[in-house]
Design a protein around this nucleic acid. Structure first.
Lengths: 259, 259
DNA sequence: GTGTTGTGTTATCACCGATAACTTAGCGGT
DNA sequence: ACCGCTAAGTTATCGGTGATAACACAACAC
């Protein structure tokens, strides 16, 4: 209204930008719905007028993208850390995939806007290219490659195998995110099962020269079975991660809009 | 304005409903973007006023949902037909998955709104339950079950295995749909590869009592490898299926909005 | 004829993203 | 000390959205 926002100093125009991002992130977190992150809502929270946002972002979409990107920057490092904690390719692969799933379910709206919405256009193409490293795909690829080299995995094309694993993992979390009203059961058991099965499919076949590897296959398979049983028993969900975005509320209130 | 729409007879209220659905479907098909299917646009095309839509649908979302559901009704039968054409479990599974992918890529916007958008709420929960049959999940499950019974597949939980396959397939098509600007290469090769790898992971291990099945595994694996090579060579896309919805155009023109 | 009600309409609200045109504070140059 | 440029915001406004309330009227039952 009348209370003008104190103007930033000459070089400090960027400050409002981060303020906008903070506000948008807060709204996204509170409402659990990207739809609610409107330019006006953000502006009101920041304490500026809505056109001011266009001083720093060409688009509402780009603003939202920037918000999500901030979160996604953590993903690669999380994956890297999780991967480095496991020396064996199989465990390493599992750790990578698990971290990816946990991240997606802990940041559902961010994951949705980045990975399940179009938000395309020329500006985002290269950003998505960059996301290949942000998503930790490199780590995944390296791990598969290492597994193939060590004859732990079958001699498949590592790029293709990595992509397929990515697809599976994305598939399960995106379904869970897109359809929160479905009775999925234990989230964790669900994606762990999908991961396990994908990895099993990747393991070296006994056809090769090494019969010793057959044993490895068997061991891994047994491990998988045991894990499944354990997961099935544990009815309780992981404490913090899944419910951050509160999807049911979002579904009732906000999601009736276009998206 | 002044030209009132000729009112339907007493019992014929439903007629406008289908007219609305037709118009919405046409707009969806022409623009390639669900965002463009606004109540006003539909109303204008039908030749009625926009509030009239609310006579037949509680929501814009439900209207869109009804449009997509009409398309999805074809999926189950398509899957059933494709499955019945293949007697062997492996081929059957591949046919099911392939049909699913082709459907998704041929009806991208419908697939997106049904499977990648929240549009949740109480009304859709049961509809999604019904979708389990609409998606042809039953056929998939039965096939996996049959394969397990015939010892062609490993003795995994068929439900879980089916779900995992569904996840993989959904993962690959949803990524392709969500990110049309990425250079995916040959669409078909992509999802065929993912399907093959998933199926290979499902095949019976030699550990079982039947050594004869090992051979089957080998044959299938070889088939997969051959297919991959062929797919890699064939730069041209399949003629009809993939391009119905014309995703690149959609990305350029319509999809710049929020979604 | 006279209600009742199905089938619509017009008018309107509260939003939304985006742009044009205007303000004003801060800083460099003279 | 002043002047002007421009960065950093503003107000006003446009066209569009989903949704609702209040009204109009034709068709049918009685």
């Amino acid at each position: 209204m009348n209370t003008r926002r104190p103007r930033a100093k000459r070089g400090q125009g960027e400050h409002l930008r981060t303020e906008i991002l903070d506000a948008a992130e807060a709204i996204l977190h509170e409402t659990g719905s990207a739809d609610k992150v409107s330019t006006r809502a953000v502006a009101q929270r920041v304490g500026c007028s809505s056109p001011s946002i266009y001083l720093h972002f060409p688009d509402r979409a780009q603003m939202l993208f920037a918000v999500c990107e901030r979160q996604f920057e953590l993903l690669a490092s999380q994956i890297r850390v999780a991967a480095d904690a496991e020396p064996e390719p199989v465990d390493r692969l599992r750790a990578i995939a698990r971290t990816y799933c946990e991240f997606a379910l802990a940041n559902q709206e961010q994951y949705r806007t980045m990975m399940m919405d179009t938000i395309a256009g020329a500006a985002y193409e290269q950003t998505l290219e960059a996301m290949r490293t942000e998503l930790g795909f490199d780590v995944l690829y390296e791990t598969v490659q290492a597994g193939v080299d060590a004859n732990v995995f079958a001699a498949v094309d590592p790029l293709r195998a990595s992509f397929n694993l990515w697809c599976t993992v994305h598939g399960v979390v995106s379904l869970m995110i897109a359809k929160p009203s479905i009775e999925w059961g234990d989230d964790r058991a669900l994606y762990e099962g999908a991961i396990d099965q994908s990895i099993v499919g990747l393991l070296a076949r006994p056809s090769g020269p090494l019969t010793r590897k057959v044993e490895a296959t068997q061991v891994a398979a047994k491990k998988v079975a045991a894990k499944k049983a354990a997961a099935k028993k544990a009815g309780a969900k992981k404490p913090g991660a899944t419910k951050t975005a509160a999807p049911p509320t979002a579904a009732k209130t906000g999601a009736a809009r276009t998206r």
